[in-house]
Amino acid sequence: MPPEGCALVTGASRGIGAAIAKALAAEGWPVGVNYRSDEEGAGTVQAEIEAAGGQALAVQGDVADPDAVDQMFAELEQRFGPVLVLVNNAGVRADGLSMQLDDDEWEHVLATNLSGAFRTTRRALKGMMRARHGRVINIASVVGGVRGNAGQANYAASKAGLVGFTRTVAAEVARRGVTVNAVAPGLVETELTEGIDQQRLIDAVPARRAGTPEEIAACVRFLASDDAAYVTGTTLTVDGGLTA
């Protein structure tokens, strides 16, 4: 049994994040359901977790804002104890061919997807190291270094960055009982993938379908468990064979 503490899932008001929050709650973790602006969505996730007998707290905060990160952690620590499972899932897209991406579109995606994960991890490691137990799980993507997808230079760079970040931090803290891994989903049907030519992608997927948020959450649940204590610094690709 891990020491007393909680889980924090960033960007958990919908999609993959919401599924992850519910999966961790079902494992017994009190869960911080972070959202930036979708208060209603986060509230729904919190309510669903509580209705199922779990514990949750919707916590507002933009991971791209350093002060917001501190605030979020303080709120959760006060309510549930240290964050011992951190899932860096908050992610945004701002697509365009690289010759047409403007600075804001580049910066915004990097700030949320990559720098945000760095800030939350830096903050969470304090409590995890002390407890000699921790799980950091970064939600990356198959486009992060394994498969190029035109029009997503900023998104792909942020996700590839997450993979490098994962390996490095894993090596730093492994002997304190803290594992750091990434999960790289392929095509999953959520609001983030609306508007993408899904059929063209599905034709390229051996499994001939998109994945579900629950299938990604199941992998996170494993990595967050005691069973995965010897798994660290790796990326678990969940893509129906797309990059096989």
């Binding site: 304090k126 190291m129 002390r130 730093e172 803290v173 002997r175 304190r176």
Partner: peptide, 9 residues
Amino acid sequence: SLDLVEVAQ
């Protein structure tokens, strides 16, 4: 260095 980070905290 990792130990020292803990001491610093």
